[in-house]
Design a protein around this nucleic acid. Structure first.
Lengths: 187, 187, 187, 187
DNA sequence: TCCTAAGCGAGACGGTACGTCTTGTCTTCCA
DNA sequence: TGGAAGACAAGACGTACCGTCTCGCTTAGGA
């Protein structure tokens, strides 16, 4: 592991520059020359740290996700509406990150990774229950996909409802049907 | 409107070439030179017919969707499970098209268009009912997004269940909660 | 063979640009970007016509040499001093070409080619005579190398003597000893 | 003045590495990174000792020439054929050095320097004589250039004749005509 | 004998040239 | 005369090299 402070500083600058440029002009249209200039870094230096623009984006998002995971309060599942409220508060706070993830650009692979991890977590949490009428894998995938879609809709429409309201909607629209089906035995 | 058969032939060749190359190597990595070569057409000729690669893809997909719409039987909404079955039969039959649409490549804008049209249709169909506890726009968006996600999951996992089973799942997992919430008045 | 006038025009521009830049800053320090800019031509276009800077120089010099050969009057060998005068008149007229050839840059391989051709010509012309005391190959090589060296000295010193005087010197210093040794039988 | 043995050792290693690499792959294609690696020396260390690759070559060749000058017996001019023989014996012994000098690479400037020194020496030695019919500068330059060309020819053709024979050729082909012209008064 | 100054390996960095690729326009040629 | 072929400008890409620099470690050679 590198401890050279120059390396840390350069990579930090590149991540920062990417975050700034993504907000200004989207992801695809950014050229590496532009990125390096924005970061105040030599063009060739970019390639000493990242093999491609996607790799830099991946690094940026992974670090954000790790930070996000550290900030997410545990034990969310007691009250679905409260859990939902926290999710939307978080989405509003990390809007930039969510937008990049959901914009379908170079981060698509990462989104799928995150999604798969979430599905696995859901399956782990509800796997002990009696076998449901619908395969658990489908239930979990549906829960995660519907939640992501709801967050995406909310951000793309500029948060038309406050987080508490979105939490209620999440609870009734997504969680309640999910819990009903998870608890149901196969007839 | 052009009636020159050469023009029709050239555009047909380009669409065919795109369909073939997308399956081989995905959408992004195809260059226009490659496309023209595969179609047996001059490089500059491409630009006489389409302003960009995306425009060609749009044309290809729109024609497929129109064809699909012609084949879709009307009056699907009597029985949710039967409606679901027909959806998955259709997805299996037009697998290639669905895969391109759902792969998140250049077709993303088109997918959003299709999705918006579906949302509008759902809202039109259920808009007359009494105001639901959850905004109709959210309900409709959720219905469409969840259906698309379920189709995507099914195709990416190589159709692990037959269409009738998927129709049942669709009915219980998506349609039944949706209908329950649509019919519910705001308390 | 290409007949497209654009191709001819582009190559002509590149040769012209190289000739101009060589005089200004020598050969080695010219970059291909500079060359293309001087020629008023796109950077990548250079590579469509020449694989390298050396190839362009080779083309430029070969064309000049061909033109020179067309202009060289035949039957020079009657009077050595007159032959020498014509050589130096020619060198003065094609000074730029000679300077590039003799500057020892990328044209070195071409100079060796020209030199070898001249040696072969000399051997062909004097080969019929009786075997000399010194191997003919050495005599011919010496004749050519000494002539080239004399031209080089004259140009690098800014032509301190007029061509008729150089012709006399050439006759006495180079040709006379050469003819004496060529005619001499091995003792 | 540096007396640190490490400095001497590093420079010796760099010269040795250059000599080895030149034989393997020529001069131009050697990169400084390669050189440093071959010498077992850090990359930046190269620049602490030489400002460029050419400077290192210059140092290497100058040291060799000095060594050569120490070994050259004085008073060569008594017998032209014997003088010539010694020259070719020396060329054979220091073949590598001569090849680099004559290959027209980065050593070209040095070759010109050596050549100029030799011309000056010749002029000094024969300057006292009565003014010749041909300017002494031209005579001296011719003598030196022809001798160098003869050595070059001999080495490039893998020494097809033994040094004594080359000494005779040198005497008859180069020295005898030179002496005849130097002694000649202007008519 | 110890300590200070220097040589040194390691390698990050800015800068620049390279040769390849792609896009969209524009010109030439041919059927 | 209209479409096919492909030359062209523009510019991004990823690689290589150069020369500078900064960091610690190690080693001289004087105090």
């Amino acid at each position: 592991m590198t401890t050279d402070p120059r390396v840390q500083r350069t990579q930090q600058r590149l991540r920062q520059a990417l975050a700034e440029l993504v907000l200004q002009q989207g992801y695809e249209s950014i050229s590496i020359r532009e990125l390096a200039a924005q970061a105040g870094v030599g063009y060739a230096t970019f390639f000493r740290h990242y093999p491609s623009k996607d790799a830099l984006l991946l690094d940026l998002l992974q670090r954000s996700i790790q930070e996000m995971a550290r900030l997410l309060p545990p034990g969310l599942d007691a009250d679905p509406a409260e859990e939902g409220r926290l999710i939307f508060v978080h989405a509003a706070q990390h809007q930039q990150l969510y937008r990049i993830l959901l914009s379908g650009g170079g981060a698509l692979a990462l989104l799928e990774e995150v999604q798969a991890a979430a599905v696995a977590e859901v399956m782990r949490r509800f796997g002990r229950q009696t076998a449901p009428a619908i395969p658990l894998e489908i239930l979990a995938h549906h829960l995660v996909a519907a939640t992501i879609a709801l967050i995406g809709w909310w951000l793309q429409h500029d948060q038309p409802y406050p987080p508490p309201r979105m939490g209620q909607i999440y609870a009734e629209l997504i969680m309640r049907p999910f819990l009903a089906l998870v608890g149901q035995e196969r007839g």
